[in-house]
Amino acid sequence: MPERHTVSRRQFLKLSALAAGAAALGRGVLSRFAQTMEGTASQVRALLPAFVADAKTLGRLIGQDGRELQPVPPSPRSAPQRRKWVMVIDLARCDGCGRCTEACTAMHMVPFGQEWIKVYRMKDNAAAGAYWFPRPCMQCDNPPCVAVCPVDATFKREDGIVLIDQDRCIGCRYCMAACPYSARSFNWAEPPHSLAELARSYSMELNIPHRKGVVEKCIFCPGLVREGQLPACAAGCPMGAIYVGDELEDTVTNSWGETTRFSELVHQGGGYRYLEELGTEPRVYYLPHRDHQYPMPETAGQIEQQRG
């Protein structure tokens, strides 16, 4: 018994030393982050969109003290459910308000400058009208980015989502060069952090916290769809232009609660996939911008300017 007692005391001493060390370490780390925050806080506030993350996204997971209220979603390399996620974007409904980008930025705490879903002003030819074109990651079924990744950092899950393991990525940026949709972003510097972001532990399904020197992109909010919720962009679209659903179930739903058959919507709506001819087999379908009810990017000159 005395022996066990000494052992436990030793263990206790060890533990307390560890705890003290960890606390010191944590304080150091936190103060460093706090400094980062100090420097960038005003900047961050200026850059963050006016979108306020609602209880469904951030508040549900993060308490007031910045601690997690729910465990971090695991980082499975295989899909948690037998699903095939698919997205349909009705260009006739998109009025270019940019709420999808804002919702996505808030949900994923996307570093400033990156737009995981980017709304382009498009004009296909001189005669055609201009239109808005939201571009998420296409989650291609024949993904050029996955093919070229040298370290298996980006991969295709069975449920159709192309994920990136930021613990694996070496930052060679080959996937960015290979992506025909310019859907990938790189953290060129240490991204500005918020405390809520830093409080999370890393999960591939969240891509939070963001790190320097790795590639990021839209990931179809796997953490949300796993729990039966629309991805942030679809939920944040005031026009109900973004439908997301399960191709196996053959249903898609938008933020208005409209639920239709995926196959009918695409079949009858003249659905197409962007750059189909490249053979990337995207999982994002577009409905053409016909008979839209609100203004489109008007002048061609504006677009020519943007094209540079």
Partner: peptide, 10 residues
């Protein structure tokens, strides 16, 4: 009606 995986109702 079908209750879809993402909370829709068909």
């Amino acid at each position: 009606a079908l209750r879809t995986t993402l909370g829709g109702k068909l």
